Amino acid sequence: MLPDLIMDRARKMNCFFLNRHRLDSCKPLIIEDFQVGLITPEVMRQLQEFPDVFVCSEASVQLHPSLNDYKTRSTAVEQVLNQLRKNDVFITLRGWRDECYEVRADISEPSLMRMERAATCLFGIRQFGVDINGYVNHPELGLSLWMQRRSQSKPRWGGKLDNVVGGGLSVGFTVEETAHKEAMEEAGIPEYILKNLQPVGNVMIFFESERGLSPNTEFVYDLEFPVDFVPENQDGEVESFHLVPIKDVLPIVLSDEFKTTSLPVVLDFLVRHGVIDTESDPELGLLSELLHIPLGYFYRRATLGAGPGVPPPPLLPPPLVACMQPAADAEPEDK
């Protein structure tokens, strides 16, 4: 049944968050008294080989005290990552991007260092991005959503269907600047259309794949396209675009053809536009919570000595605690 599939996918995109055993096996990554990441046992074993950079203990992983500013931290960690990449230890480093993300507890907090984008999932670094729902009120098709098919050459999720525009916040760009930059690069959307860009909130998920952890916060925008506007890729990272009538959207995004970590953005759109309601999904309340995982419980000022840095179940909303599952393998990224 469709409601069961919706909830199954919502749990899948939060497979790390809902795996209590896996959560408890991780150690918090602490920088300047802020928890900025989570370290899995597999990554911990590798970091212990670099004691001049990482101080690993039963309670946490911290950077060496000599690394006390943005530049020294960024340089030292990059050297470790280059060594791990040379040794081909982690699959995610094969997709090295030469693009950095800021490392911080929240979007409003100062950046403590920067890190190669492909490596952030190894450290459970909080990732921020922008997604645009490009929709059309078509005279024949009715409400419809534009989707893109990602280029096969993309290092992650190559060939999958995706939101019409989406991208991560790179060093030096604000949320709004990223929205405009990605809209032009990915879909060739001109400024006269972008002036109608509407911020509608965010979605937050905590996913794990064989590449690592993805604690994602996506800032979401809705944008109505003129009926005669057709997106056109500018940077070679999109294979094609497709206009999908709203009645056909849900089966597509729930299939393995759609990028898992973009699914919450579309589900949020469908909830807000009444396509998913309590009749079509009796667990709508729980679905809404799974679209807005409380990442602030992990990424905040740290209290060392309080265990692995994961808050006890009573701090979480009761429906989410009830969803927590026993240990399971990370999701294959191509699923």
Rank of each mutant, 00 (worst) to 15 (best):
residue 3 P to Q: 10
residue 9 R to E: 08
residue 9 R to L: 08
residue 10 A to W: 01
residue 13 M to F: 06
residue 24 D to F: 13
residue 25 S to R: 07
residue 27 K to H: 12
residue 29 L to Q: 02
residue 30 I to M: 03
residue 30 I to E: 00
residue 33 D to M: 12
residue 35 Q to G: 10
residue 36 V to I: 12
residue 38 L to P: 00
residue 40 T to D: 03
residue 40 T to N: 01
residue 40 T to Q: 02
residue 45 R to G: 10
residue 45 R to T: 11
residue 50 F to N: 08
residue 51 P to H: 02
residue 52 D to K: 05
residue 53 V to Q: 02
residue 56 C to W: 01
residue 65 P to W: 09
residue 66 S to I: 05
residue 67 L to C: 05
residue 70 Y to L: 09
residue 75 T to H: 14
residue 79 Q to R: 15
residue 82 N to Q: 15
residue 87 N to L: 09
residue 93 L to A: 03
residue 95 G to S: 01
residue 102 E to P: 13
residue 103 V to S: 04
residue 106 D to K: 14
residue 109 E to T: 13
residue 115 M to Q: 04
residue 118 A to G: 01
residue 119 A to W: 00
residue 120 T to L: 07
residue 131 D to A: 13
residue 141 L to M: 15
residue 141 L to E: 14
residue 142 G to F: 08
residue 145 L to T: 04
residue 149 R to V: 14
residue 149 R to N: 15
residue 149 R to K: 14
residue 149 R to A: 12
residue 151 S to N: 14
residue 151 S to Y: 12
residue 159 G to L: 07
residue 160 K to V: 07
residue 162 D to Y: 14
residue 163 N to V: 12
residue 163 N to L: 10
residue 166 G to E: 01
residue 167 G to M: 01
residue 171 V to T: 14
residue 173 F to S: 14
residue 173 F to C: 13
residue 178 T to S: 13
residue 180 H to A: 11
residue 181 K to G: 07
residue 181 K to A: 09
residue 182 E to H: 11
residue 186 E to W: 06
residue 190 P to L: 10
residue 190 P to D: 11
residue 193 I to S: 04
residue 197 L to N: 03
residue 199 P to V: 00
residue 205 I to Y: 00
residue 205 I to M: 02
residue 206 F to V: 06
residue 206 F to I: 06
residue 210 E to G: 06
residue 210 E to W: 08
residue 210 E to Q: 11
residue 212 G to F: 06
residue 213 L to M: 15
residue 216 N to K: 10
residue 217 T to S: 10
residue 219 F to W: 13
residue 220 V to T: 09
residue 221 Y to Q: 07
residue 221 Y to R: 07
residue 226 P to Q: 05
residue 231 P to L: 01
residue 232 E to I: 10
residue 236 G to V: 04
residue 239 E to Q: 09
residue 239 E to D: 12
residue 249 V to N: 04
residue 249 V to C: 08
residue 253 V to C: 02
residue 253 V to M: 01
residue 261 T to E: 06
residue 263 L to D: 03
residue 270 L to N: 08
residue 272 R to Q: 00
residue 273 H to Y: 06
residue 275 V to M: 01
residue 276 I to V: 03
residue 278 T to D: 04
residue 279 E to L: 13
residue 280 S to R: 05
residue 282 P to F: 12
residue 283 E to C: 09
residue 288 S to I: 14
residue 288 S to Q: 15
residue 296 G to D: 13
residue 301 R to F: 12
residue 304 L to N: 10
residue 309 G to I: 00
residue 310 V to C: 10
residue 314 P to G: 06
residue 316 L to T: 01
residue 321 V to Q: 04
residue 323 C to K: 08
residue 326 P to M: 03
residue 328 A to Y: 15
residue 330 A to M: 14
residue 334 D to Q: 08
